[in-house]
């Protein structure tokens, strides 16, 4: 099953590009390879296609290359083999500004993401860099904050917010750029159960293409119909989340574990 789906995912990517009708896939990673300057090989031959509106979980143990892959999506890293396209646009020097607008990355620690003195200024940072000014900028900021339920906190400094609120503001900072794809790095990390549920509700309401990097398998099952497992720098499996999580051997082979007592078959799929 793993092998078959891997192959279809690969050829599927090419298939979508050849089809004249319909929008190009939000994300298309083809044969991506990368080695760090110290020689450590982080990615090799990664193929991944994410269609418009799809929510995909990227699962994998620590050191599997998840962060390296994410940093390729908006061109922070690059120069290895293969390539990445975002909604048809190749990730390269020439298109870097537009690519960074299209790919909204929410980093794991909101304190890294929220660096401006107030919430509103932070949300305005991205669109202002893209050239938006005045009323249009204000409207964009207000709308993004409304979408995550943080409009009432616009003038507060980020360090006055709770962790869950900061995570939501971090999501708003990239929503304000009207991205093609939202990339979340461990979105449920350090959240209490209520904040975790609130974030899940917000993510489900967004109607955006989402790539969610996580160890949190129940969260992946809750939000993403499809998952891919990145292990040792390559895609090891690609398929419906419920199917992957129901395969204990597959999970064990890639150091993934379900929480104690969690039964994926008892949960309605996302």
């Amino acid at each position: 099953m793993r092998r078959r789906e891997h192959v279809t995912a690969e050829s599927g990517g090419a298939g979508v590009r050849d089809t004249p009708a319909g929008p190009p896939p939000s994300l298309e990673v083809r044969g991506l390879g990368y080695a760090y300057p110290d020689g450590h090989r982080a990615l090799s031959g990664v193929h991944l296609t994410v269609a418009r509106g799809e929510r995909v979980a990227l699962l994998g143990p620590n050191g599997a290359g998840k962060t390296t892959l994410v940093l390729h999506l908006n061109g922070i890293l690059g120069g290895g083999e293969g390539g990445v396209r975002v909604a048809g646009l190749p990730v390269d020097r020439e298109h870097i500004a537009e690519i960074r607008r299209r790919v909204g990355i929410v980093f794991q620690d909101p304190d890294d993401q929220l660096f401006m003195p107030t919430v509103a200024e932070d949300v305005a940072f991205g669109p202002a860099n893209a050239g938006l000014r005045g009323d249009a900028l204000q409207r964009r900021v207000a709308h993004a904050l409304e979408r995550v339920g943080m409009a009432a906190w616009a003038d507060r400094p980020p360090h006055h917010l709770s962790f869950g609120q900061r995570r939501r503001v971090a999501v708003a900072t990239v929503l304000a750029m009207e991205p093609e794809i939202l990339v979340l790095d461990e979105p449920s990390a350090n959240l209490d159960p209520a904040a975790r549920r609130e974030l899940a509700e917000i993510l489900r309401s967004l109607e955006l293409t989402v790539l969610m990097v996580t160890h949190d398998l129940p969260y992946a099952l809750e939000l993403c119909p499809r998952s891919v497992i990145l292990s040792g720098g390559t895609i090891a499996a690609d398929g419906p989340t419920a199917g992957l999580l129901a395969d204990p051997e597959l999970l064990r082979a890639h150091r993934l574990e379900l929480p104690f007592g969690f039964d994926p078959s008892a949960v309605p799929p996302a």
């Binding site: 789906e5 995912a9 990517g13 298939g15 979508v16 799809e54 409304e146 917000i202 119909p225 690609d238």
Partner: peptide, 25 residues
């Protein structure tokens, strides 16, 4: 289309639960 993607890829995802639950935000 990529085989593992459930549902028509171009359509934005609007499950019935989202529509009825109101805006979680």
């Amino acid at each position: 289309a990529p085989a593992p993607a459930p549902g028509p890829p171009p359509a934005p995802r609007t499950g019935p639960a989202d529509g009825s639950a109101g805006s979680p935000a």
